[in-house]
Simulated scan of single mutants.
Amino acid sequence: MSILRTTSASDLPAGARRRIEFASRSQPKPFQTTAERALARAAPNEPDIEEVQEEFAWTFPEADEKAASGTPWNKGRSVGAKLALKPKHVWSLRFHLQNEGMVRDLAMFDLAIDTKLRGCDLVKLRIGDIVADGEPKRRATVVQQKTGKPVTFELTEQTRDSLVGWLNVRSGCLEDFIFPSNQNPEAHIGTRQNARLVKQWVEAIGLNPALYGTHSMRRTKVALIYKTTGNLRAVQILLGHSKLESTVRYLGVDIDDALSLSEAADL
């Protein structure tokens, strides 16, 4: 009489168990939404879902809804990396915010340009991060949420002046957030509200808000530095990237950039 024996996972060799576990993790579940699949794939050092949505200008619920209706989720939308602002755009935005008396927005805009931080890090800045002995620091260091690594940035005179103007209105102690939420003064402004403000700013000076976002603020200064110097290593340090390849992809460096730098080196 034969006896059927059921083999459990614990009876298999270690190598076989690892292959089975990897295969089960790799298979997407049919009932998962786009957001659930993205969260399942996300590693601890990858950007959070809100940051991905804000950077590429689409939302998971909208994508799922359009997919169900048979309509491409990106139809009629501008997707992809956001453009950096040009110097003339920065000057126009500053003039607009100053002329409208938008003290908080001017400080937020100047701080975003100088710090080159992601939106999730910018909104969480506390007064004590950039103020010492009652004055804004010339240089400051914060730990990035995405990588857990510190990044140092400079604060220009323009930014220090706009910060002083805002903090005189905002008041508060060193432990308070620089930009508090309107609903809860003890919390910071949200990343989505920050993104909405950026779109309002660029629209006010005649730019297409679909082409710009909070990452435009992050890219603006480093794009100018790269264009002026061609120093990728300096840009990598300023952005807080651990790999140079990430900086190359972030700036969109291509063969034309390399050739332009080569042509400028006249021997």
Rank of each mutant, 00 (worst) to 15 (best):
I3G: 01
T6V: 15
S8Q: 13
D11Y: 08
P13W: 03
E21S: 13
S24P: 00
S26D: 09
P30I: 06
F31V: 02
L39R: 11
D48H: 14
I49R: 02
F56G: 04
T59P: 03
P61L: 06
E62I: 09
A68Q: 14
S69Q: 07
S69E: 01
T71H: 14
K75P: 02
K82N: 03
P87M: 08
S92K: 07
L93G: 00
G101W: 01
M102I: 10
R104G: 12
D105K: 04
D105S: 05
A107F: 11
M108I: 01
D114I: 06
C120S: 04
K124A: 15
R126M: 03
I127H: 08
I130T: 01
D133S: 09
G134C: 12
E135Y: 10
T141V: 06
Q145P: 01
K149A: 07
K149N: 06
P150A: 00
P150E: 04
T156Q: 05
E157G: 12
L163G: 02
W166S: 05
D176M: 09
S181A: 08
N182M: 06
N184F: 10
I189R: 10
R192F: 13
Q200E: 13
V202F: 13
A204I: 02
G206K: 11
G206R: 05
L207W: 05
R219Q: 12
V222Q: 08
I225E: 15
N231M: 09
V235Y: 07
G240N: 11
S242Y: 09
S246P: 04
V248F: 04
D257F: 07
